[in-house]
Design a protein around this nucleic acid. Structure first.
Lengths: 201, 201
DNA sequence: GATTATATATGACACGTGTCATAGGGTTCC
DNA sequence: GGAACCCTATGACACGTGTCATATATAATC
């Protein structure tokens, strides 16, 4: 019997997945939770064989949870599930060496199948995503530029950034000017968006 | 037998809902589609009793589809389903007099139940949403201000807006200044966000 | 008829933003 | 010793943005 835990914040999907997995004769759903904190409790107490983790769950995200699972050497296999094909998420998941990474745009049969595969020690990834791994671009920004853009993402203004990094106003603006050009953006906001999607900040 | 159509672009959820509805003895799923165009074809040909429409589906949105259904006096009941509790969406759905409006954050049982209720001529709305209807705020912007903000949302700059509306630069900026204050925003972008969520633009 | 709200406009001020030219330090590597 | 990068900085220019004071005309309302 494969013991599964589901961490997904959208109630309707969570319930539906749970019901359908229960219908499989070789699987059972140990618990279904709506946030990362509760998920962690279940993982520690119940030691599920497979965790299905949505990336965008409250309190502790699926990626942070996967990191924690790896750090504490839990035996459970991790299957990430998400709506968006963000290269950033995918990259982090791969760095964490999770067993599977699926899009919610796949049929459920694919998920059920994936559960059995990861139990067998196989790796699973949505076909759409496999392609993006080959087309992976490298971050054209320097370290400092990346750092500055990260602060813009946090909502800081030019002045707040130069206070934080002990730089002058002009330097910060120069960095951002360079970033905007390197990313073919038209404004800092757009640059943040582009870099986020690529997983660079 | 209640004949149901499901229009939902997220494959996993669509399939799951479909399977679970099929398990009910008094319901059958006529078709499950991923966009508004296909949904319309099914509605015209198959005349389902109930349409479950996600608001955010490609090509033709769930709201546009509901409008079309009303305009052509199709007999089918409409159940809107969405992720977000945007008052704007809700307001439009109510204006269209749809039979039900549920959040994906509800359990599936609630959805199944809702299908039976709308068939019986009842109205269904998520409890969370019913509350927001009472707290509905009125748009503090004048017509002209709303119009200008709508153009900002489309991505136009001040200059493009004054060309479009045959106004001077100063006037447009005055309007936006007023809008920003009325909505307690800190920039035009934030004003767009606030007004969108309230359903004013 | 006076008041109030709206649509429109102008001019001015302060700031934020993006770009450019330029320049002095520091690594790293051929 | 250069060449090629990176980090840092300055000063200047052009534009965009938000605010304010002020003004006129029109329409609605009391």
């Amino acid at each position: 019997m494969i013991r599964v835990m589901i961490a997904e914040d959208q109630h309707m999907l969570r319930g539906a997945l749970s019901s359908l997995i229960e219908l499989e004769t070789d699987m059972e759903v140990l618990a279904e939770v709506s946030d990362g904190d509760k998920a962690w409790e279940v993982i520690e107490k119940e030691k599920p064989d497979v965790c299905i983790l949505d990336i965008e769950i409250p309190v502790v995200s699926g990626l942070e949870l996967a990191e924690k699972i790896r750090a504490t050497e839990q035996s459970c296999k991790v299957l990430m599930v998400t709506t968006f094909a963000r290269p950033g998420y995918l990259q982090k998941a791969i760095d964490l060496e999770v067993e599977g990474y699926l899009l919610k745009d796949e049929p459920i049969d694919y998920l059920i199948d994936a559960i059995r595969k990861v139990i067998n020690g196989e790796r699973v990834i949505s076909t759409d995503l496999a392609a993006t791994l080959f087309m992976k671009e490298t971050n054209p920004m320097t370290e400092r530029e990346t750092e500055v853009l990260r602060l813009v993402k946090e909502g800081l203004t030019t002045n707040q950034i130069c206070d934080r990094l002990f730089l002058t106003k002009g330097t910060v603006r120069n960095y951002l000017s360079a970033v905007i050009q390197k990313l073919y953006a038209e404004s800092r906001q757009q640059a943040v968006k582009i870099a986020s999607e690529k997983g660079w900040i």
